[in-house]
Nucleic acid binder design. Structure first.
Lengths: 213, 213
DNA sequence: CCGTATCCGCTCAGATACTG
DNA sequence: CAGTATCTGAGCGGATACGG
């Protein structure tokens, strides 16, 4: 038996043998947002060594989690259906890890893909369904996201477009999502800066996206 | 920054920094069944080196996931409330990994705690609520479990007791849980051996515990 | 016996340089 | 741009030994 195997006949060990290696689930996290090129993955995971990225891509491909897909002259990596079924795992991990997050340290970055998945984690479709369709432009550190909520549907993209509320925030937005910081306080203390639109829509944002801390 | 950190301000990376190390989630998996002594954990994870087990217990304790609790002369390790919140993560991983499980290899063992969590993963409370309360004694490899289903409640323990159906099965029980193998076929082909009680209750068992493959 | 520490060999991760 | 090659060191696996 390979020394690195756990030696148990169990779904959890099987899963960990496929995606338990360092960086593997973070690659999956980013690919859950959409297909990505090698360089885009490297950009979204600034600290991953290139050889490790190459190795993980090979392993995840061999495990049937992702595939190399040719797209007009370039290759992108995209999840297979089985790989997409990891979304509940990533969301559960994200929700659990959220509670342990303190304030950000200087070296910590916020990437567009990680922020997108965080928004998906915090999204409350049942709540959103009761609210009018709303779109937001959120600038969070380096990540500039277009967030469209329409009923129970959520769409997060990197494009630009017309929005009801445009705001910029530091990573302190975490305390808005967790409910520790009221929307109006977030604005008055400068944690969130309203760039365009009605600031009171931030309350709707905070209701739509919520995670317990 | 510690070299081993991912350098991202994100719930998923935070979670992986706490429980992403090798063996960590398997320790959590077993503790989700109940408090365990050091030796019991080592027994449930036959291939873990003792130094790694000791190191993980320290790390998980420092992270607030488990605590050492004195119990009449001996120490047991038990999850904190925050540690118990990892249950959705472990269940999601188990359900996903289940689909990738083939037939067991010779070196792979089935432990009572991993089997208990697998049953929790496969349990369908909504289905069980419509069925009469039933208890099963399931011998699965080395694991001998008492499984009590009462309405939407599931209790799996290692004790013995009066049951409606007692059966023994090899790890081929996976195909029963996945629906690939019909209950009567499981019995007629010897995959499941009925030791005591009405064999037709195995169909109820297969309805109560189901995971897609 | 339970829990932990120490040793060593090895694999994998991390950093950098290099190539088609 | 998309990887591959190489080197170093950290963490893991396995055995053994030690203290309560």
């Amino acid at each position: 038996m390979a020394a690195r195997e756990y030696g148990q006949y169990c779904g959890v060990t099987q899963a960990l043998e496929l995606v338990g290696e360092r960086w593997a689930l973070l690659i999956v996290r980013d690919l859950l947002v959409g297909p990505r090129r090698y360089g885009e993955l490297a950009e979204g995971l600034p600290r991953i060594p290139s050889n490790i990225l190459a190795a993980r891509l090979k392993e995840l491909q061999a495990a049937g989690i992702l595939r190399r897909a040719p797209r007009s002259r370039v290759v992108v990596y995209e999840l297979t259906p089985y790989g997409r079924e990891l979304e509940p795992v990533v969301l559960a991990l994200g929700a659990w890890g959220f509670k342990a997050m303190g304030d950000p340290r200087d070296e910590q970055v916020v990437t567009p893909d990680s922020m997108t998945m965080a928004l998906r984690t915090a999204f409350r479709p049942a709540v959103a369904a009761e609210l009018p369709a709303t779109s937001y432009a959120a600038r969070l550190g380096a990540a500039e996201l277009l967030v469209r909520v329409d009923g129970a549907r959520l769409d997060v993209s990197r494009g630009d477009g017309p929005v009801d509320l445009s705001f910029a925030a530091g990573p302190g937005i975490r305390r808005l999502i967790s409910g520790e910081l009221a929307p109006d306080r977030a604005i008055s203390t400068g944690v969130v800066e309203v760039l365009h639109g009605r600031g009171d829509l931030l309350a709707r944002f905070a209701t739509t996206f919520h995670l317990a801390a």
